[in-house]
Write a protein that binds this DNA or RNA. Structure first.
Lengths: 346, 346
DNA sequence: TTTAGCACTTATTAAGTGTGAGTGCTAACA
DNA sequence: TGTTAGCACTCACACTTAATAAGTGCTAAA
């Protein structure tokens, strides 16, 4: 069992190592600890903490660095979140000022704000209701054989895609097809829509078109786009500061993971947890490349419009109490901003 | 005046330094030169080349590296472009296979292909006619107060943007406004459109709406989007390989220049020259950050649909003859692909 | 004009040397 | 029993030194 003073020592080691990034030794601890004991005493405490696996030496005679287990313990038991400063709060509110035309604009902006505020990398996922449903579908002819397909979903996302129609499709058939979509599919959850597009819808359309495939491909493509969650990243290049130049490969693979629009990000952020704010560290991060990094994941709630996620990727040695306080304020500001955005549609 | 052999030496220095990235000395030159003379003789030639400012020492007793002036001389007088290999050609054609729905998809894909092929960074700018004109404008209501504005231009680009209408706008007025746009503005070059939107159009609209500002702002925004050229970058992260880890700041500033959608890129690629392929080096590159890099700019022609640009950013020590040959093949393949795309609309 | 030979320069690498920060342990102390 | 002073020990880091290898310029002879 660890004594009270030993916990203080751990806390101070974490504090100093996030400040300086260097291993911390018994003397500098002695100077800053609230209790006044000699460095030898502190060394004994440090030995105990090391036995418990909470701190590490970088070499046999070096100071100590918190281990992953140490951070985890700190986060679970010791941390005292600092409330966001009024200045930060004002910065956030000001940065969210102005009008937004599109849901995605707000989400993208949130990633930018958060990364500017922290100098880390922010990842923002828009609000997602448990079952998004299709609320609108349009097909707009643009001249030539070009058409633009537009799809609106219940969480306010709008997806559009340009298409070139095959020459043999006539316009009255298209109109009928659109009517079928609007009659039969609008209002249903997206997964049901996807199911019906494969089963009964082709049959229905057969009445009006000889080959509904062309049309259904278009519809299916935009549908897929709407179903896949879109995420925004702010402060990509901050990675270069906190990963550093020594591990170029890590830097490269993290950057490409963030750029690539594959499922990696969703896997990273994991299922939306039931805790508002969660920290993932070391092995808890799924792609191994992120081993020495840390991810703070915050979920926010926009009522009927679902829950979203905003996350902060940084080094293991983050000033957690400040960051968690900041993120907590941020998620509620973001929720506020989104709620006011949604007011336009209800 | 330089002798024939001295030019051979220069050529070989450039060849070897692009291969190894290291300064090259008289002995290794002796081994690979087509003429057989002693290393001492070559040293004399090298001294002459250095006097002419075409090659440099990295330190007083090192081998030689081509100077910017040396590369420039090589490019202007000595280079013999290698035709693209049949394999490369096949790769390009295969990568362009498949169907594209949108002009921008082809342009974006071209940047990807070129960067994969070369392991450098590719920048692609779509075709631009001297005066792009407005060929279509649509405003699609999406429910709530949301509308999507879509604008089509004569070079095949489609730009769209989502908007939230103020509550006090009524739909019949909007319809009238759209008719005015289609009657008075469609068919005109974009710059004329921009002019009229400021002068006579507001007056016309006054007849139907009390405050046409809201509508005109929407229209103006999409117009601005359509007028600003969009570019695509492939192989961003290749920068990390050829800039290298030593100059982190350069890496960072080049990356952010490429990501930011400011005018920097247009300035970089400069006015479309009258030569099909042009190389810019050293001081010739406008942002100083690019000093030690090299940019190969290729222009291509799609007839009435204008001319586009595709460029390759790499280290000064690029295998120019291969790259120029490759780019020459690439630009004609890209033009071919675009021509066949445009066939859908003429 | 070309070449062999030689003195000279410099980067790179390895090995050796202090120095300083930090540790563990022991023995004395409260 | 917990705390402290003292001391020997370890290791990274910065610095010096020496050896090596690659390359140059110059001179004198062919």
């Amino acid at each position: 069992m660890l004594t009270k003073r030993q916990l203080l020592v751990l806390k101070e080691i974490i504090r100093q190592s996030t400040e300086t990034g260097q291993p911390v030794g018994s003397k500098s601890l002695m100077a800053r600890l609230p209790v006044h004991v000699s460095s030898a005493t502190i060394r004994n405490d440090m030995a105990a903490l090391e036995d418990a696996g909470l701190i590490l030496k970088t070499h046999s005679s070096s100071g100590r660095v918190p281990s992953t287990k140490g951070y985890r313990f700190y986060l679970d038991h010791l941390i005292e979140p600092t409330a966001a400063s009024p200045m930060d709060l004002a910065t956030i509110q000001q940065a969210f000022g102005g009008t937004y035309h599109e849901l995605d604009d707000i989400v993208a902006q949130s990633a930018r704000i958060l990364s500017n505020l922290t100098n880390y990398t922010a990842i923002s996922l828009g609000p997602e209701v448990a079952s998004v449903s299709l609320t609108g579908f349009r097909l707009v002819p643009l001249g030539g054989q070009q058409v633009m397909a537009i799809l609106v979903t219940s969480n306010g996302a709008v997806r559009n895609q340009l298409f070139t129609l095959p020459a043999n499709v006539d316009s009255s058939a298209i109109e009928k097809a659109i009517r079928i979509v609007n009659d039969k599919l609008v209002g249903l959850p997206l997964n049901e829509v996807a199911k019906k597009v494969q089963s009964e819808v082709p049959e229905l359309m057969m009445h009006y078109m000889t080959t509904p495939d062309g049309f259904l491909n278009i519809f299916g493509d935009v549908l897929k786009q709407a179903a896949s969650e879109r995420f925004y990243v702010g402060g990509r290049l901050n990675l270069m500061d906190f990963i550093g130049t020594d591990d170029m490969n890590q830097l490269k693979s993290v950057l490409s993971m963030i750029d690539a629009d594959t499922g990696d990000i969703n896997q990273l952020l994991g299922p939306v947890g039931n805790v508002p704010i969660e920290v993932k560290l070391g092995d808890e991060l799924t792609p191994d490349t992120l081993k020495n990094l840390s991810l703070i994941i915050a979920n926010y709630d926009v009522g009927a419009h679902g829950t979203g996620t905003i996350a902060l990727l940084g080094p293991s040695a983050m000033p957690y109490s400040r960051m968690i306080g900041l993120l907590d304020a941020f998620r509620s500001e973001l929720a506020k901003r989104l709620t006011s955005y949604y007011k336009n549609f209800d």
